[in-house]
Design a protein around this nucleic acid. Structure first.
Lengths: 159, 159
DNA sequence: GCCCCCTTACTCGGATACCTAGTGTCCGAGTGTGTATGG
DNA sequence: CCATACACACTCGGACACTAGGTATCCGAGTAAGGGGGC
């Protein structure tokens, strides 16, 4: 089970975008995070499709959050990049083989699928309880309150 | 984020093995579950390496659980097949780019990594709280108490 | 001086190669059983 | 009748192809700004 690497870039990108009131081009974000520009752009497209960011074309265009950072959960970003379907997919092997269970009695998921689904639920719940604003606050706390100010300064410096 | 398909087979296989006191060959398990025999064998090898099942060679050999089903958690089986490292791997991009944080101040994981780790913890905790015995009981309950008896009968029938 | 149009440079967006990791399969090494033989 | 040695059939284990999804990249379509020209 491996999560797409783009999730990390998308989360960092959203935190950065939360500090800007003007659109930020993908190339600028890539420069700040030291990531391949084109690949980061691909993931930003996914965020755009999910309605988390809004893109503006043209000369001073770029990406911008559609909502306040406190209204965007980590779960939304993860699902936008990595997809919404759960990690465990039941292939209904209980309906296979000599002891197959008839399909009519498989109205509810089997016990194994239920167990995996409950774990997935716990995971999703944890991520849904954290917002981009929380992440920004955490990063700020780690750097004694200077990190976000530095980001804001850097974004406006070369703009 | 996609979990290996072999996890489902391994869990079903462990439930089946919990119903047998004699070794069960991989080919027999594959027949019961309708899965490719060679591929299932590959995953059983992983379970063997993890110490969850014990293999016996020879004419009446096969696989057997090393512990009571109530002492084997779903988490163990999942990690044996899918690996122990978490789905999210932080690449420390905070140390990249023009606003890089010096490595000396990165003694603890960044806020994003902490958020993902807490979610992973919730997921692992949920799976660690369910045992193979619980799964067997759940499957039994779904079929009004006949499923495990049918498995035991089938295992001894063609042995 | 003001308005309109055009050029320009910059942006995103999707379509296109590459590469790792999961999927699936096969054959060889090892082992315990069962039988045939000799005492 | 019992012990021993052998041959056998069956088991696992690791090594070998194949395929899908993630990784990385590029170029074209579209747009807003800014400058130049006309009124």
């Amino acid at each position: 089970m491996k999560m797409s690497n783009g999730v990390e870039w998308a989360l960092h990108g959203c935190v950065t975008l939360s500090q800007s009131r003007d659109p930020v081009p993908a190339a600028r974000l890539a420069e700040l995070h030291g990531t391949p520009p084109a690949y980061l752009a691909k993931h930003l497209q996914a965020l755009s499709r999910a309605g988390i960011v809004r893109s503006t074309a043209g000369q001073v265009g770029g990406y911008l959050l559609t909502r306040p950072a406190a209204a965007i959960t980590v779960l939304e970003v993860v699902q936008a990049i990595d997809g919404t379907e759960p990690a465990y997919r039941c292939t209904e092997i209980r309906q296979q083989g000599p002891l197959a269970v008839p399909a009519e009695r498989c109205d509810r998921p089997c016990a194994i699928a239920r167990a995996m689904a409950s774990a997935q639920e716990a995971w999703s719940g944890a991520l849904a309880g954290i917002t981009i604003a929380d992440l920004a606050a955490g990063i700020d706390a780690d750097s004694e309150g200077t990190a976000m100010a530095d980001v804001r300064r850097w974004l406006t410096a070369t703009a």
